[in-house]
Design a protein around this nucleic acid. Structure first.
Lengths: 248, 248
DNA sequence: CGACACATTGACCAGACTCAAAGCTAGTGG
DNA sequence: CCACTAGCTTTGAGTCTGGTCAATGTGTCG
């Protein structure tokens, strides 16, 4: 966190909510004055666990996190990726028991906000309540999009679709542009999200490079052929409900 | 619809909401007096289409429906199954544009309720608003469970998991018991939901019959070995959030 | 500079798909 | 009440996408 961010840790949350709904000045101020315990976390650390009944929600201020579920024999399904501004455990406000875990994928900074404060905030500001509501509906839309990918798309199309989605989500909160975005996760993480093996994800990435669709080095993804990637994966950005900008 | 049901078409909606949240007498009466245009539909008929901006929600009173998305080359992914009491397009109250379609799978009876009436109802009865909210969160939980099945389970485990889920959902609204439930959909429908081919679904069903796990004839599913099916599919009913009864 | 995690490659395997052909069964109309 | 039909289910043979197992690079951080 730098000095500007310290002024309000909630800046990223506001930016995220404004990417899917309009906020008034009053609402922005109310969010900025939310109490939040800042926490620095390492990579691969659980934030909330399957079966927990959390009493606070976590806003991601920096770094990447994911929802995931463990099955027998160490199988892991990643259910969603989360970036700055996201509140992955927002549903815990209304559904007490977690049916999955949430963990960091990279080093991360999060703010823990008591459920109580959030309930007060939403009771006082119906506009914010609506924005939260809308956020979880967008989340559900992303789950549906992943269902479609898992059920109908080839591994190649699936990876392409994921890259389009991640780029647009990052762009919406100002963390990407010019068809480049950070991608600080491993091929094994991607594999667990797409229901593939790391080996096969690697082969798909090789093919994408070979076809000059992307560059992926260090932790930076460059989409060299955006339109082509959209076309190949039949990407339709409607489900992200990003009102302010068209895809691309 | 029989005479008793005519008394209030919303009986199934109330029963459904009570399977996931508590309602007061006042709230029950408010729901019962909702205005709803009753419609009789044939099988395979669209109720809402991808891209629509609906002005009402549909409560399913009888029959089965599904959410689905069409891709190129006639591929169809079914995103969820819906039964009596469900409001599959409830999210349209807060997210204007549909990113998928909703259609009947069997002959069905639905009630169309204007968004306006629902907004009035929820504004006047926060408990009902909370129940609706909770319902869409449960829906999201079901999407996550399907993600896990698609990503990590074998075809056999996936079919088993689906059968456990459908049985419990039907039981929760009084449409199943004794490990028997109606299953008025085709193997092709199941295939489109699980991302498999109808041929492979058929082979899986044959194996389940061979292992005396289920009986499936006419449009009736009998689960002969419930515990075994739960175990084989690693079924954990938490995500359905059915407070009142344990699984089974 | 060494160690560990991550990425890459190769050879072989298997679960699910494709294509094609019968066999059932529930509605329909005569 | 029966014959017909359309849609659904079942079965078989061959194929392919993605998985498994195992080894070898590569890069990054103490």
């Amino acid at each position: 966190m730098n000095a500007a961010a310290d002024q309000s840790a909630m800046t990223m949350l506001i930016r995220k909510l404004e990417s899917i709904a309009a906020l008034s000045d009053k609402e922005r101020r109310a969010i900025q004055s939310l109490p939040g315990r800042i926490q620095n976390l390492g990579a691969q650390q659980d934030i909330v666990r399957d079966g927990d009944q959390p009493k606070h929600c976590c806003v991601i201020l920096d770094g990447w996190a994911c929802r995931y579920k463990l099955l027998s024999q160490g199988r892991r399904q990643i259910l969603s990726f989360h970036i700055s501004g996201d509140i992955p455990d927002l549903p815990s406000l209304h559904v007490p028991t977690m049916d999955h875990s949430i963990a960091t994928l990279t080093k991360a900074v999060v703010a823990l906000i008591p459920h109580e404060s959030l309930r007060e905030l939403t009771a006082r500001h119906p506009g914010i309540a609506a924005a939260f509501w809308r956020d979880t509906l967008v989340d559900a839309g992303i789950f549906r999009a992943w269902l479609i990918s898992l059920g109908q798309r080839s591994a190649f199309e699936h990876v392409a679709h994921l890259f389009c989605e991640l780029y647009l989500k990052l762009q919406a909160v100002g963390l990407a542009g010019d068809h480049r975005c950070p991608l600080p996760i491993t091929q094994a993480d991607i594999a667990d999200a797409l229901g593939l093996t790391p080996v096969h994800v690697n082969r798909v990435l090789q093919e994408m490079r070979g076809r000059t669709l992307i560059t992926l080095r260090g932790r930076m993804l460059v989409i060299q052929a955006w339109d082509e990637l959209l076309r190949l994966s039949e990407f339709d950005p409607t489900y992200l409900q990003l009102e302010r900008r068209a895809a691309g």
